[in-house]
Design a protein around this nucleic acid. Sequence first.
DNA 1: ACAGATTGGTTAAACGTTTTTCCAAATTTG
DNA 2: CAAATTTGGAAAAACGTTTAACCAATCTGT
Lengths: 337, 337
Amino acid sequence: MRITMKEIAKEVGVSVTTVSHVINGTKRISEPTYNKIMECVKRHNYVPNYSAKNLRNSATKTAGLVVPSFPDSYVTRYINSISKRAKEMGYSLLFVNTDEDTDYEEETLKLLNAKMVDGIILAPSAKASKPLPYDVTFLKDSMPIVLISRRHEAFDDCPVVIQDDYQAGYDAATHLLYHNHENMGIIYAVEDISPTNDRIRGFEDALKEHGLKLPSNHIYQGYATVEGGKKAVRKLLENQPQITAIFTLNDSMTIGAISALKEMNKKVPNDVALIGFGDFPSAAVMDPPITNINLSPDILGQTAFDLLLNKINNPGYNKSKSVHLPTYLITRKSCGC
Amino acid sequence: MRITMKEIAKEVGVSVTTVSHVINGTKRISEPTYNKIMECVKRHNYVPNYSAKNLRNSATKTAGLVVPSFPDSYVTRYINSISKRAKEMGYSLLFVNTDEDTDYEEETLKLLNAKMVDGIILAPSAKASKPLPYDVTFLKDSMPIVLISRRHEAFDDCPVVIQDDYQAGYDAATHLLYHNHENMGIIYAVEDISPTNDRIRGFEDALKEHGLKLPSNHIYQGYATVEGGKKAVRKLLENQPQITAIFTLNDSMTIGAISALKEMNKKVPNDVALIGFGDFPSAAVMDPPITNINLSPDILGQTAFDLLLNKINNPGYNKSKSVHLPTYLITRKSCGC
DNA sequence: ACAGATTGGTTAAACGTTTTTCCAAATTTG
DNA sequence: CAAATTTGGAAAAACGTTTAACCAATCTGT
């Protein structure tokens, strides 16, 4: 049970009114009482109950957003799938995009924790190799959390539903090896998150099995946009002209890659072969059609919600219930097939 | 003020307990009392207060969904923009995709109305030329509503923020006329909604001013997907081979159009010129780069939220505050420029 | 020094539900 | 027909806040 104002008041020896005034700054309260209350609040990680706030204030500080349909893409597809599943189960969805900003992520988790939600599906933005830049212990035992599409050791005890990124990287490399490539490169967008790390690791391991290495300067980061993909490919090939195959880890960047190669008069796949990630809608109609590592965002989303629901109804649920979804290589022209 | 259980109880002459049991079916209640209560409930359009429910049940039936970033596209961009603005103003966002399903839209509005939200931004899914298939009067005086990107006469008294679809259609036609096209076609996705209707009307009016007509069999509907665009263009040109320019109203379909024309060995823009709608990320890197009608989803979203906030704080807000955003023609190769 | 204002705090009601406990009347049982 | 059970409904507490009304004690100005 979460601590309430009443308990704080009792512990400090004041009225709930005073606690409320201190917390909201709605009235001048003497320094000593203020400090005693704040200390108690901090010590117990007090968070206000928004259901009560909402009832009392007859306002929710929540707006509805209703749209008739939603474009196709990896993230939007799993969001859509979660949203459908949530509806089927009588749940609503409170959606936040943190924009890869961990500070905002922290704020968001705190807000959602304030009892506005029964559980959280999270794709964490923190760097995978570093500790989480905020304290999450206060959350983990009171709030059911399920990770989606990204892992982080700070949430190692939470169930996670994720595509098999390692295998995806392994498969991409293996297929390019089958086409006799020896000098390969990788273009990626977000640094040091599990999908990026795992795909690269799988890619490297496949190469290693064939006695090959992926030099670190063959791995290039760019912005997750079409322009970003163009720039990244251009830079990569300027510096490492011996590269004959590229694995792009982001669909916008894949489109940019095709475009950059065209502008550099490199034929795909003859001069440079290409494998993309995430079977985005235009992949099949590009020139040439793009070979892709495909995953199932619909299943990803649905599974994530089901896992969350189970965890809400059964607090004992833990990591052991994690789900790893396979990825598939869809061969088209861009790899040389 | 919304009617409560207490008032129902008083009016019928029973206790709130009984009302609660009738509404939730949690106890057997005699036929006559049941009927009296239900009649009163219906007559007053009673909706439960979810803030109170949530408080009492210590559950919200709401899940949090936190993602680190969001792909680029027309709808997702304005959603993102709304979400950013909401955050700045201390609001959360409850997001629902109705999938063009008016029944689900009705359910959704009812749910959001149950005091879970302070206002609603709505892109309605109903056919523009028909009356709304559900009753919305119960909503309109109690719930601030702002329309985004689509109009509907049932919401004629609500502020709306919308792109200038008529002008967009007019500009597209005018530009194609400038390139000396006389036989043009339109490919669209969703039938009888204001964006589709207005763009077509603007297009037709521009033609009319030059003494030309747009035959109805030059206007073709398809699915809002790449495949859908391919199929639509193929059908359109099979039946009307004299067409030399196509205006596509949906970005996925535009990509499909390019691909279909390529497969039909029609050169763009020499055999068939193309103007698309919504400046999607890959438009500039397609082959050829696609001329587009551009709009500003970021401003659209931000304005919608600001309007909603104003309406929440000032119930007198009405239609007169609507905002029409201009669209821009971005010329690239596909139109013949 | 005394009326008036200010400070720091308390009491208690209210928001709209759900649910436990209780009870009288009606019905069944033996 | 008395005892036991079932039925239909009510009273009241509880969920965790906010806030209006109040009050004693201290501070101010003259």
